[in-house]
Structure formats: C-alpha cells, structure tokens
Simulated scan of single mutants.
Amino acid sequence: MDTKILTKVPTENSLVWGIAIDTRNKKLFLAFATKITMMNYDGSDYVTLLNKKNGNHFGMMFDMEGHRLYYADSSVLTLGSLDLETNVTTVYRNDTLYLSVHEFEGVLYAGPFGDRGTVDVLPGGCGPRSYVYFNTSIHGGIRATVFRIYGCPSGWYGRLCTRECGKCFNGSACDNIDGHCADGCDTGWIGDTCTTACPNGTYGERCGNLCDQCVGGAPCHPANGTCQAGNLVQELYHEDWNLVVWALVSVCVFLGLVVVVLVILLVRCRRMVVTNKQKKIGVTAGAVRNPTYQDDTGDAGDDITSVTHPDHVYEKMDNVQPPVYETLHA
C-alpha cells in the first residue's frame, strides 16, 4: 500500500479457496482444492504445508499467538489445525461440512453449510458443540469471524490480558495481541516476545558478547555480562595475590629474624674481641693505670734509677738513709 507495487504470487493455475496472513512474519497461506501452501509476501520460499488427493474447499485463519493455522475442509468434512512449529496436524471434527473456521480465546467458531443461520461453537477445539443462531431464514453457508479491539494495560497482552510483556527495547510496550516487541528486545534478551535471556555464555545486545568464566559455571548477567557468583579469573587472581602477599610477609619476617640474629652475633663477637685484647695488655675492664713515678726535672741519674715496663714505670730509690731508731725513756 505504500509503494502501490503489485506482486503476483504463484497459484499453480488453480482456484484459491482461502487465504490467511501472518503479519508478524510476513507470510501468506493459500488454500487450493488439494493443498495448503505458505510463502513470503513476494512469493518466495514457497512450500506446501498440507496435501490431499482430492478436495473441494478450504477455509482458513492463522493464530499468530499460537503459531497455529486452522482450516475447514468441506470435501472430507474436516475441521482441524496445523501447528507450524511442530508440523503436527490436529483434527477436531470430521462430521460436518464447514465453510469457515475462526479461533478466539481458545474457542473455535465454525460456519457450517446448510444449517439455517447457525455457527458452531467448540470450546477447546474438541469440546461439546453448541450453536449461535443469527437468522433462521438464512439458508446456505455462513463465514464466522470473531474479533475485538484489545486494550490491555501497559506491560500485558493476550486475549484476556493475562500475559506479561517481555523485555522490550528501552521499556517500550509490547503488542496487545501477540506480545511481540515492535522496536526489538532490550539488551540481553531475544525472541519474538523478548522473554528469552541470552544463552549461557553470552550477553549484551543480541547476545553478541561472550561472558567471562563465572565461578561454578554460573551464567553471567544477560545485559552487562557480570558474574553474580563471582568471576573465576578474578577469584583465582585474588587467591594468587593473597598467596603472594603471604609469601612476601613470610620472607620479610624471616629476613627480620636473620638480621636480629646477625646483630646479636656481631655484638657478641665484638665483646669477645675487646675482652681478648684487654687480657693481652693486662688491663681489665674498669682498672686504673698506675701512676708514673719519675723526676720531673729529668735529673734522676743522681739518686733515682728508672726502670720502664710496657705500662708501668717503676722508680728505684738509691741512697736511702737507714731508719733512725730513738730510744725512748720513760
């Protein structure tokens, strides 16, 4: 509608009986007489989803939230669905000619042919069938479509607004119907609804960064990559650093003890040297050298003969007068 460009999609020269659209993934579903096909909007990636030998009509609708394609095959009176994720086909009814099918809040609404203005209601797809009457004068086929405008509170989505939005970019609101984030996911989250955190070992925008090795193999934070249980490399670094610190402390203590012992030994050796020297010169600690007796005039040759020893000078007195004895009378 923006470019007004018309694209012709392959139809295999057969009538197209039904069409459904996946607006989120930009896919077209076409129902032919004997098959259901899927392709991109431009006709590329053309694949066949469902085949049958013969047929007459398919009515279809696609549930984006459940990734399920519902169909009504009037030729074999089949009402069923195809899970596009598992490729499993489920048949709900095989007894009535239905022209259309519509799923709403877990209930199938199917338009039967020739039931005079009624719509079949099948809870859960295969529950007990009830009817909605519109106009009993109508004869023929009715195509049923059930819809409403969603108005979920911000942060919620789904048919009953019971599903919480994922981590949309910058906190933006998700789609009210299927919960997808139009602006993409916030950092650390992926998936259509941005509810899947980055796989273990990755983080950041579109999970493009690799985590550091966390302690115990725990995952890192999907947004910033931090290890909530601790970084193993940093833990090992801290442990190694602690060992280095303790080793340095031990070496310093050992060297301190060696220095103290050496000082003590040096002091003791010094004392021994001093003691030995004093023994050699005959002087003990605290002794006073004997005075030197000699004639200050230097004329000691007349009366005094000086005898010199290494540390002492002994003077020999000559011409000493004998003592005088006096007789004392009473």
Rank of each mutant, 00 (worst) to 15 (best):
Asp302Lys: 13
Gly298Gln: 08
Gly155Leu: 07
Pro10Asn: 10
Asn40Met: 04
Thr308Gln: 07
Arg163Ala: 08
Asp178Val: 05
Ile304Asn: 13
Ala330Trp: 06
Cys152Ile: 01
Arg68Ser: 06
Asn176Leu: 01
Arg68Pro: 09
Pro291Gly: 05
Gly141Cys: 04
Asp83Val: 03
Asn290Cys: 07
Ala31Ser: 08
Val313Gly: 15
Val260Phe: 13
Ile142Lys: 07
Glu164Thr: 13
Ala31Tyr: 02
His221Met: 02
Asp45Leu: 08
Pro323Trp: 01
His180Pro: 01
Trp17Asp: 03
Asp45Val: 09
Gly166Ser: 08
Ala287Ser: 15
Gly191Trp: 09
Asn231Tyr: 08
Ile21Cys: 00
Ser137Lys: 14
Val251Ser: 13
Tyr92Gln: 05
Glu205Ile: 11
Val121Phe: 03
Lys280Met: 03
Phe29Cys: 04
Asp63Tyr: 01
Ser81Tyr: 04
Asp303Leu: 07
Glu239Phe: 14
Trp246Leu: 10
Tyr314Gly: 13
Cys269Phe: 12
Gly179Arg: 02
Asp45Phe: 15
Trp241His: 15
Phe62Gly: 00
His57Asn: 07
Ala229Met: 11
Thr196Tyr: 05
Ser14Gln: 08
Arg206Gln: 11
Met272Leu: 11
Asp186Tyr: 11
Gly282Leu: 01
Arg68Leu: 10
Asn209Gly: 05
Thr48Asp: 06
Met317Asn: 11
His67Phe: 07
Gln228Ser: 15
Gly80Phe: 03
Val320Phe: 07
Asp299Tyr: 06
Phe29Val: 03
Arg116Ala: 13
Thr196Ala: 13
Asn170Ala: 03
Val76Leu: 03
Cys126Arg: 11
Asn13Ile: 00
Trp246Gly: 14
Gly201Asn: 05
Tyr133Asn: 09
Asp42Thr: 09
Val215Gln: 00
Met317Trp: 14
Phe32Asp: 05
Met317Gly: 13
Val313His: 12
Ser74Gln: 12
Cys227His: 00
Ala229Ser: 15
Asp302Met: 12
Ile177Cys: 08
Leu266Glu: 05
Lys35Cys: 06
Thr89Lys: 03
Glu12Cys: 02
Phe169Asp: 04
Tyr46Pro: 02
Pro112Tyr: 00
Val267Glu: 11
Met38His: 02
Phe147Met: 02
Ala223Gln: 15
Gln213Ala: 00
Arg268Ile: 09
Arg206Ala: 13
Asp240Trp: 15
Tyr237Arg: 09
Gly59Asp: 00
His309Asn: 06
Leu255Met: 14
Glu326His: 14
Leu160Lys: 12
Pro199Glu: 05
His221Asp: 15
Thr308Cys: 05
Gly204Phe: 13
Met39Tyr: 06
Val132Ile: 10
His139Arg: 06
Ser154Tyr: 12
Leu79Gly: 07
